[in-house]
């Protein structure tokens, strides 16, 4: 019982580290392309975040399982092959079951392959740790990424389109500030959110 409790505590710390202290978007500033490109609505942002989480969790697990077999010299190439295998799987599943989401995310599903977060976690964590912690690391970093994307998507969709999950919020009289769902708005929203996170972190200390 004691041991299980300890394990659970460790798990919670690891989750917190992935989601908050080492948040890939706001703290590490990794994986910016999907963050900026797919957050025009909450639905797209969540879809992208969860797809990335799935790839990250499975690639971390498998890279960790294979960590003693993969030769050091070709490790990056091997990681890329493993990652792109899972990306292709996600891509095909999405085409089959969520065609409308696949349509709106477009090429960015394939571009999960070159998301630096995934390669960074493979190199920094999964290649040095046991399978279970690697899987948990993948899930928590992925959830941190999803959370950041959803936050960005919420702000952009509400201000830029006046809707939330596609449901109109303010009635017909509201004129949405379309700038926020355009590319320029992505940069500006992310800048403001990042500054907000910095402010909160500096106050906590």
């Amino acid at each position: 019982m004691e041991k299980a409790n300890n394990g659970f505590k460790r798990l919670l710390t690891q989750m917190k580290s992935g989601i908050i202290d080492n948040n890939p978007t706001f703290v590490l500033v990794l994986g910016m392309c999907p963050t900026l490109a797919t957050t025009t609505s909450v639905t797209n942002a969540l879809g992208m975040g969860l797809a990335t989480t799935a790839v990250l969790a499975f690639s971390n697990l498998f890279i960790s399982l294979l960590r003693n077999i993969i030769p050091k010299q070709v490790r990056i190439a091997s990681y890329i092959v493993i990652i792109s295998g899972f990306v292709t799987a996600v891509e095909m599943l999405m085409k089959a079951y969520l065609p409308s989401l696949d349509e709106s995310l477009g090429v960015f599903i394939s571009l999960i392959v070159v998301n630096c977060i995934i390669l960074a976690r493979a190199e920094a964590f999964a290649s040095k740790n046991k399978p279970l912690p690697s899987l948990i690391d993948g899930i928590s970093i992925g959830l941190g990424f999803t959370l950041a994307l959803a936050l960005l998507g919420t702000v952009r969709e509400i201000i830029g389109a006046g809707t939330f999950f596609g449901v109109p919020l303010f009635g017909d009289a509201y004129q949405p500030a379309q700038l926020f769902i355009m590319p320029a708005g992505a940069f500006i929203t992310l800048a403001c959110l990042m500054a907000g996170v910095n402010y909160l972190r500096s106050r906590k200390r």
């Binding site: 590319p183 320029a184 992505a186 990042m194 500096s202």
Partner: peptide, 23 residues
């Protein structure tokens, strides 16, 4: 810039302004 904006946030904000010009 204001302290929370130092570093990456202000850089992103500038990128936003350039993107607006490109619009």
């Amino acid at each position: 810039p204001p302290k929370p904006f130092k570093g990456m946030p202000i850089a992103l904000l500038t990128a936003g302004l350039i993107a607006m010009a490109f619009m």
